[in-house]
């Protein structure tokens, strides 16, 4: 079995491992793609962060996950969109101010957590391709990823918090 097919044979690996890996791949590829074209549309990194939020949200939809396995067009769209989100985030990351970054990270965390809770609480199988046990694991994993994003948001905000401390003295 090829590694991609193996990862996609489990909902948990598909969502919790493949999605972040594709994002990381895009992030890594970004250094080889000239970025000048988008800079004027990505002031403060807003465009990249918005695009990534949309990609996050879309691929939390159970039907989208099923179709990524059943339709080659959807599968291509999935790879392309996650990689593109990684590229855009990487380009925009230096333009993102800590507050804006924390806002988007918090937003994504909230989204992953809601999806995670829904996946955990659903009584029926949400994806025809995945068993319900796997769905429970995925729900818990999404909650864990949400915590990671919260931690990242806090890290981005830390310099500001410190500054506030200093200036209040």
């Amino acid at each position: 079995m090829n590694p991609l097919a193996f990862i996609e044979s489990r909902m948990s690996l598909h969502m919790l491992l493949e999605f972040p890996l594709l994002l990381a791949l895009g992030w890594w590829l970004a250094r080889w793609i000239p970025r000048r074209t988008l800079a004027s549309l990505d002031v403060q990194g807003l465009f990249g962060a918005t695009a990534a939020s949309c990609v996050f949200a879309f691929w939390m939809i159970p039907a989208a996950l099923d179709l990524a396995l059943l339709s080659p067009a959807f599968a291509t769209g999935k790879y392309a969109s996650w990689i593109a989100a990684g590229v855009l985030l990487s380009w925009g990351r230096q333009r993102l101010s800590p507050v804006v970054a924390a806002f988007f990270l918090g937003n994504a965390a909230w989204m992953l957590a809601s999806a995670g809770l829904l996946y955990r609480d659903a009584e029926a199988q949400l994806c025809v391709n995945y068993l319900i046990d796997d769905q429970l694991v995925t729900g818990a994993g999404l909650l864990a990823w949400a915590l990671v994003l919260c931690a990242l948001a806090a890290l981005r905000l830390r310099p500001l918090l410190r500054q506030a401390q200093v200036s209040s003295r």
Binding site: S40, L41, D42, V43, Q44, L46, F47, T50, C54
Partner: peptide, 14 residues
């Protein structure tokens, strides 16, 4: 910096 093109692009995207 001009925010308008960025905001327009974001709106289109959403």
């Amino acid at each position: 910096v001009a925010l308008v093109p960025t905001l327009a692009a974001c709106a289109l995207l959403v």
